[in-house]
Design a protein around this nucleic acid. Structure first.
Ligand SMILES: [Mn+2]
Ligand SMILES: [Mn+2]
Ligand SMILES: [Zn+2]
Ligand SMILES: [Zn+2]
Lengths: 141, 141
DNA sequence: AACGTAAATGCGATCCATTCGCACCTGTCA
DNA sequence: TGACAGGTGCGAATGGATCGCATTTACGTT
């Protein structure tokens, strides 16, 4: 259930979704975006490829793809939701409180620990939604 | 910067905030709530103590107390934000996808690991926003 | 104890990210 | 190629959260 190469079409088919030009355009934009764009930003970028796509469809498609597990939604604070292609391995995020930059925090140990904690309570994790707001430590000059 | 006993008043003073009856009422309600209520729910409960408090003030007070570090906001998915008194030790949350119940996940190891990961990138953590959606594992009957 | 001032509140209006309704298109499969 | 379910564009609506402003309140100062 991951979109690694350029098999958008196959991934959509496997999810039982129609292969529309809007969905292909959105997926290809998201594949080449590393900055975790929000719906409005995705909308602008997608329109570079296909200027007929509407904002409503961007929202609908993102929700559809999220439900299908192809896309992940990031609910940060005080800003519209951001999106990314579902990564091969789950990862947390770090938001630089000064610059707003979003940094990936991949950690197998983190995932393992989280699974253990949930398992100990009799739960299996469905999805992870985790980020920290952090500030760069000033090194003495 | 934590509200442990009944020192609401002191905590407010230390934060440089006026000690209003609305703020005291809201803090006392939040202290006795273990279910992570949202603003609307807090509003209803607070009005049991003081029926003059407005919803706008509940929102404003929650934001003010959050800024002061006394309260923490939980942005789950597809529902209004929830709130809790800032706990002594940071903890993650688990949302049962079937019941909606929110369960605390305190883990020193988790906090330590997260700090290490951030530190390795030259960051110090300001706040943690982490929850997992999970499903109870069915044990064979 | 009354005063002066800045901060806080109540109320309604407003914002804005996201969702909806519906008429019109388009993939898909026979 | 035809039929039909599913998808889309457009504008309207939703709803959680915030704002503007007149009024009240907390609190340090006379
Ligand atoms: Mn952005
Ligand atoms: Mn609730
Ligand atoms: Zn990411
Ligand atoms: Zn909690």
């Amino acid at each position: 259930m991951t979109v690694e190469g350029k098999e958008f079409i196959q991934a959509l088919r496997e999810a039982g979704l129609k292969v529309t030009q809007q969905r292909v355009a959105l997926l290809s934009i998201l594949m080449e975006s590393t900055d975790h764009p929000n719906a409005e930003e995705i909308y602008v970028r997608v329109r570079g490829l296909d200027d007929s796509v509407s904002l409503a469809t961007v929202y609908r498609t993102l929700s559809t793809l999220e439900e299908a597990g192809l896309v992940q939604r990031l609910n940060l604070e005080n800003e519209p939701a951001r999106f990314e292609i579902t990564p091969a391995a789950a990862h947390d995020h770090l938001v630089d409180v000064d610059t707003g930059q979003v940094i990936e925090l991949p950690s197998e140990e983190m995932n393992r620990l989280r699974n253990d904690i949930a398992a100990k309570l009799g739960y299996e994790i469905v999805s992870i939604h985790s980020f920290v707001r952090a500030r760069k430590i000033k090194t003495s000059p």
